[in-house]
Every structure is written in C-alpha cells, then in structure tokens.
Design a protein around this nucleic acid. Structure first.
Lengths: 134, 134
DNA sequence: CTTAATGCAAACCGTTTGCATAGAT
DNA sequence: ATCTATGCAAACGGTTTGCATTAAG
C-alpha cells in the first residue's frame, strides 16, 4: 500500500481521496477539493471539507499529487506522474488535456540556462476552446 | 491621455495606479493589488483597497494590464505590452524575468492545432532560482 | 495505550459588492 | 446637472487552523 510507505496511516478519507484521484486520472480530469467533498457526501461518507484539504496538502507534500491554479481562484488536483507534462485548458468547459513536447522541454532548459536560472519546475498552459466546445 | 480614450474618467486613483504599473514595468516587476494599496497609503493618498481592485479589473478588461496567478493565491499585475511574453519566476525572491522564444511560440500553435484547439492564450512559467539568489 | 487523523466551527486571506457620498465632465 | 467613480464596511469563496473527539498502530 502506497500510503503506508509514505508514513501515512490508512484511513477512510485518505483511501477514498486517493481513489477519486485515480479515477480522475483515468479520465484525464483535474478535480477540485470541493468536488471531492461533494462526491464523498453523495456517497454517504461523513468526511469534512477540512480533511479533504488536509489530505490533499499532505499528498502534495509527499509528491503524490500536483496542485494547479490555472487562471482561476480555486485549485485543482491531479495524481502526479513520474513524468512531467503540460496542459491544454478549455476556457469554456475547463477540461484539461495533457501533452508533452520534447522540443519545448528542451528549449525551456536552454532558456533557463541562458538566464543563469536553476530551473526547478515549469508550467505551460495553452488556453483555448476545445474541439467539443466549438 | 490613454485613459480618456478608453472611456475612463481621469481620477486620482486611476492615474496613481497607472503610474505604479509603469514604474513596476520599468523595473520588470509584477505587483499585487495589496502592494499598490500599501504604497498609496504610504504616499498619503486616501484610496481604498476596493478601488485598487476595481481599477485593476477595469484596466484588465480594457486590455491595459495582465493579471497573473503564478502558483500562488494572490494575483499580480503588469502593464500589457503589445507583444506576448513568457516568464522566468524565481522561487526565492519572486522576481520575474520576461522572455520570448519564437520556437516555443511556434510549437505551441502547432500543438493546439494538433489537438483541434482554438488557442486564445497561453502562459509559460519557468520556475527556479535566479542568479542573484543562488 | 499512544499518537496521529478527523469533524466541526471559527478564523483567515484575497477579492468583490452594496450603498451612500464625492467628483469628473 | 448628470452619471460615473469612490470609500467604507460587509459579504464572499476558497482554504487553513484550533480544539475536543475518534480511530489507527
């Protein structure tokens, strides 16, 4: 069990939240804390919103999930992959599609170097209207 | 006067805020609403924080300023240029350096096209430790 | 049994809004 | 004189925290 290795106790909230993150990942979706909370309530689980936030923050610290702010106020979360990827975000339906482009990755590293920057991370968001929303 | 052309009345808050944005731009800095508010108070101007936000939102709508969320909760603002640019953001001192890379711009357009996306905007942030902070 | 995790409510922070007043045209 | 812009305080949405309680190890 992943959780135990990370030093977490196995609890219902953590299990359920992991499950939802995995489900979201399989559908390539990003999910907000509030959404998870709602789904938990609907499923009859008596879990507080504060716990959802606490668990997500712990998971983030452990490197298990990524928190994105896109251009909105509310944060969305996704299970972290081994490999980095960037996002296409639909401005109408908020759907996010992932992609990786080697050429861009490479150029980014070069630009950082050029400016004497020790790159720790990077984020590329392309905003637009997705095929379904046009 | 720029403001008049955009249909804005010329008022002290708007003038002062524009001035601060121009000053920030000359130093290549991004500035938050709260920071502007503080500076205004310190300069003896009796301007409310709500007004700062209102003016910034109006400026943004008019295309005069850009609002960035980087990876934090609070937004920062900058005077909009005619041309787009991306950012190198220092994770220590928060300084942001601007850059434009034609190859990346071009690849982004291609990726959007490839996914059937009507690109409206895009944002690339490279996070790291700047030369001064190393 | 011990210590970490939870639920709840209250606090918090950045931002927005309603409203009566002041100011630009 | 008109109508927009302002200041203030209260509301807001998302997130965090304090505390007493519960549950995992």
């Amino acid at each position: 069990m992943d959780l135990k290795k990370l030093g977490f106790k196995i609890t219902v909230p953590r299990l359920k939240i992991l499950e939802m993150l995995e489900h979201a990942k399989s559908k390539q979706e990003h999910i907000s804390a509030e959404e998870m909370y709602r789904q938990l309530l609907d499923a009859g689980h008596d879990i507080g919103l504060a716990t959802v936030y606490r668990v997500l923050t712990q998971f983030e610290t452990a490197g298990l999930v990524l928190r994105h702010h896109f251009e909105e106020a509310r944060a969305v979360f996704e299970l972290a992959d081994d490999e980095h990827h960037d996002h296409l975000v639909c401005v109408k339906c908020s759907a996010a599609t992932e992609f990786v482009d080697e050429m861009i990755e490479h150029r980014q590293a070069e630009i950082a170097k050029q400016y004497g920057f020790q790159m720790t991370d990077h984020a590329l968001y392309i905003y637009g209207v997705c095929q379904g929303c046009q």
